[in-house]
Structure formats: C-alpha cells, structure tokens
Amino acid sequence: MKISNREWAQLSAYLDGELSQRELIKLQNRMEEDPDLNAALEEIRYVKSVLTHTPLLSVPRNFKLTSAMVEVPHRRSQAWGYRLAAAALSFLFIGVVVLDIGSGVLKSGMLGAEAPRAEEVMLEAAADELEEPAVLAVEKAAEEEVAPAAEMEEVVKAPEKFDSGQEGDSVRMAEGETETILEETNRDYSGGEDAWEEESQELENGLSLDEEPMPTEADYYPEQEISRPVETLAIPWMRILEIALGLGAIGLWGAAWIKRQKNRK
C-alpha cells in the first residue's frame, strides 16, 4: 500500500465530511480505481469509530467556583520602589565608573604627550652609542696631554730631584704652558723638605677631618625661600563613591528580590 500523506489527509477529511465538492468527486473517482485507498479509508474509519465510543468519564469532584477562587487578589507591591531605586543607583554607579576610567585614560594620555616618547629615548640611546667612540678618542687624547703633567707631578713629589734653584732638565715639556707650571712648582718647592712636609701635614689634617653632618630639613627648605611640598590627605573620593553606589545597588536589588520571594509565598 503506497499512499501519500496528502492522500491520507484527504481520506481522513472525506470520512469527516470536510472535503470540498471538487475534492470529493476527485477522490471518489480515484477510490473506484485504487482498492488501496478503500482499505486505507477503512483503517481510518476503524480508528474514528473506536475513538467516538470512548467512554465518558465521571467528574471526580465538583468544579464549582467559590468567591475565594475568583476574588481579585489584592495587588501586592512588587517591590517597585526597591527596583526603581536599585536601577537608578546602578545607572549612577556605571556613570561614575565610566567617568573615573575616562578621566584616568585622559590623564595618562596627557602625561604621555609631555613625557619623551619611547622612540625618542631609543634614538637618543643609539646616538650615544655612536658618539661613544668619538668621545673615547677625545678623552684618550686629553689623557695623553695630561700624562706629561702627571709625570711632572711625580717628579715634583720627589724632593731629592728638585734641588733649590735647579730646573728639571730631565723633563721635556713640549707645551709652553706645562713649562710655566713646572717653573711655578719648582718655585713652590724651592723651600726644600720643610715645605714639602708642611704641605703633607696639611693634606693629612684635611683628610682626617670628620665627615660633614647630614643636611637638616632647614638646609633643604630655607625659611621663606622654598616651601616644602604640602602633604595633602589624598582621599580617593571617586573610589568611595563607586563603592557606596555599588553596595547600595546590590543591597536594593537584594531587598527587591527578597520582597518578591515573600510575595510569591
């Protein structure tokens, strides 16, 4: 038996008298030709007959209404006040948080504009590296220039080599300036060993001096010249406001929920 769903539906409607005149004639013509359709119709007729004979059940009880069943329940407060307040606080909280974050971002952006940019710092560092050999070369040259003078100092420190009135013939100074210094040095030490000892004693005395005492606050901030930074009590009002609003919103939502649960009971 190969009957389509549409044919089943038509047979079912035929049995219930729900087919249009045109559909009825068409189906009847087909049923005359196809015995399967007749058999299918009998199947449906059987099901319908059984269902039509379904016993009617007695009602288990009366379903009459009482006034208590149909009275309009007193409209309980659905905690609208709490909900409204909670919603308002929530919006305020979100607004304050957005304002806080926004101002922070703005501030950091401004600081970033003032501060040297990272790229610039890197470029400077690279330039320093490039300049370093040149600087070293200059320093080396300077050292070479100073070296004869240092040598000369050593010579000066050896008193036996500098007799009074005797010039340091062994010292070869190319620069006229160095020669002048040498002459002055020789003149200073012309006093011989006594002068040398005096100076050494002075140096020792100088070295043995106690370290300078730590500068006091008054040294850093002389009166009426520089005022010390004012220590303000930095209370994060924004944070306090955020916390207060957040806690308030949570509390009100909780209260609204509790009230709703109570109303349901």
Binding site: N5, W8, A9, L11, S12, A13, D16, E18, E43, I44, Y46, V47, K48, V50, L51
Partner: peptide, 17 residues
C-alpha cells in the same frame, strides 16, 4: 488541523488494534 488529525489517526491504528 487536517494534517495533524490524519497523522494522529494513522499513529493510533496499530495501537488500537
């Protein structure tokens, strides 16, 4: 409704037999 009724009846056939 037509379609549901037809399918319901076909489903009930074997069970009711």
């Amino acid at each position: 409704v037509k379609s549901r009724l037809s399918r319901a009846r076909r489903s009930l056939q074997d069970c009711l037999r």
